[in-house]
Design a protein around this nucleic acid. Sequence first.
DNA 1: GGAGTTTGCTTTCTGCTCGCAAGCAAAGTC
DNA 2: GACTTTGCTTGCGAGCAGAAAGCAAACTCC
Lengths: 378, 378
Amino acid sequence: MTDLREANRGAVLSDLLVHRPTTRTAIAQRTGLSAATISRAVEVLVADGVVREVSEVVSANRGRRAVALDLVGERSVVAGVDLGASTTRVVLADFAGAELRRWEEPTRSDLPAAALADWLAGMVTGRSAGLGAGLAAVSVGLPGAVAESGAVSNAPNLPQVMDAEFTSGLRRAGAVGIRVDNDVNYALLGEQRRGAAADAGDAAMVTIGAGLGAALAIDGRILHGRHGLIGEFGQLPAGPMGTRLEHMVTGPGILRRAEEAGVPLARPQDLFDDEHRLSPLRTQFDHALQIVLTAVAVASEPEVVVLGGGIAESLAGDLDRYQATLGATLQVAPRLVPAALGSFSGAIGAAIDAVHSLYADLGAEPGFGGGHGRSAAS
Amino acid sequence: MTDLREANRGAVLSDLLVHRPTTRTAIAQRTGLSAATISRAVEVLVADGVVREVSEVVSANRGRRAVALDLVGERSVVAGVDLGASTTRVVLADFAGAELRRWEEPTRSDLPAAALADWLAGMVTGRSAGLGAGLAAVSVGLPGAVAESGAVSNAPNLPQVMDAEFTSGLRRAGAVGIRVDNDVNYALLGEQRRGAAADAGDAAMVTIGAGLGAALAIDGRILHGRHGLIGEFGQLPAGPMGTRLEHMVTGPGILRRAEEAGVPLARPQDLFDDEHRLSPLRTQFDHALQIVLTAVAVASEPEVVVLGGGIAESLAGDLDRYQATLGATLQVAPRLVPAALGSFSGAIGAAIDAVHSLYADLGAEPGFGGGHGRSAAS
DNA sequence: GGAGTTTGCTTTCTGCTCGCAAGCAAAGTC
DNA sequence: GACTTTGCTTGCGAGCAGAAAGCAAACTCC
């Protein structure tokens, strides 16, 4: 109950972030506020240069044409980064969330923490130069658990990021607000806003690649946990002899287990060739994945579970089968779908989070899908 | 934003529900509202007979003594019911949540759905007669998943409750508001408010008895899921040969597995005698429980996991061991504690939910720990 | 034991905001 | 060209919260 007027401006912005473009009347209906209040709030936002009237909306209605409102995109640029163990993907977007540029390059995983941060910051600032507006916010997803304090743990595939030097280095390099969160959390956010989990309030994502990660969202909100451990289903000691599931289903785990079984594979993906379809290794993989999917399902009861990550791409043809098994186990099973944004889910989600962080500064409530990310605290 | 004045009254009530008794000034501090506003709101509540000034608070402060405020208890009586597969436990409480009476008796599991509802309703109304005030709300916890719609599923140990006749019968028998939810959800609510999970916003509960159940709370809110399936970790196919975990750790499952192994047990509890400490069956049980605990931990990252249920009582001495294993698996492991309210956690939690439902009618926000239960919809 | 002080609560008053209703504007319909 | 529909803005009244001042009841200290 700070300032009611400001709160209403925030509500308008929040609505505009999700429904874009829209009209004053539509905002009034969705927010439940009166048209008069919306008009007054929009007036301020337009004066502030945050919102702009765009060309009139095409409408089948009879009366006066509504004036479409949209966010002013050119104000500034944000970056969403998915710092993977092997590949780093970046998306630059404008203030309105429109994608401006995307690229990927190998992660310099050979660098120590501070140098890695410098490399990342240099790459992003370098490539965002000359876009007209300055970089206003950066969100970085990384393969580890990010605590409320900003501390990173559980990142075996890119251990440098656990070093406090990494986050502090990032903050030093860029003058702008930097937020850090788990890569899968961002990927789920991306899929919720622009991908396979659109309009699913309860959704989950599982990524399988170099590591196993999961993210859970309930009522549009991504669950974090004080230490960021929510979703670490790879820790489940449910494999044979109590092996952790992450050793059963991730790329390095598959290679090692194949070697131990005397049938070495050239690449983890080979396990999903037809010739291995009935191999014990493949059966164990399926079983382990089934446990993960069931755990995700009963942890948050998502309407949809999005599968992403390098290994998951090889599973596209088997989704129906997994879905069927899941349905046999649970009365109500979630839909199992591949990531619609592909390997860029995480970067896109990070960019969305960065945009959100800017609007949060303007008073927008963390509405549907909001409240993500963690600002890199000192 | 309905009526701001009413909203403030609700905020005062919500605060009073959690901090009881308290003073006007204390409420003002906690809610952030001005003392004037609180005074005005309290005035109305006292006039309505919902709140009362009680004897002055003993204080070490120097100035004028604050007048303690408390809820008026005698207005009405609520009942919390824990309808177990074998035992039914009931708690009667007054409007202020003070326990009036508790008892338990064998569940008439031989009865069909409608008759079971009649038996339950008759028992509760009969025993609550003559308490001065009428029964105003009843909350029933049962061993199954309760959907938003009110439909019950996943109740193998008391299948009658899945029959729509049961809930409709309950509603017919009692004229008052009846709410139904999963028994473990209520048990966790009880432990959060009066027991082992007090002042833990993020908490979880696992009950092991005739069935395996779990409940998760994040930020004081118990997670439900549209179909009430959140927490059904017994469905995890993580036992040997893909056995569901509920078959590994529950009473009936233990007996059957012991028989299959050629070492029949008289009672499931016998598995936890010293003589079985190193038996393969016990090892398998420990492993299965470890998986459940890990899954609960990474599903919601609770500060504390409360263990309840008949089997869990036998585990009291082993909690340290489980805790140690959990700590070895996870960087940050939750505390593992037995249910402080014993076998009445569920009934007490249900009674708290019933009280909450009454205050929700008066405008109290579902604050910390609120928003539980599901009204038995038609 | 009286003056001063601290704390709790109430009352008065001011400023702010919202929603209603009326008015204006812009489109389509007849 | 009058009428209707729809979108937005403006004028007005009511409601509410908070600041500040006032009253009340304790304690402390001289």
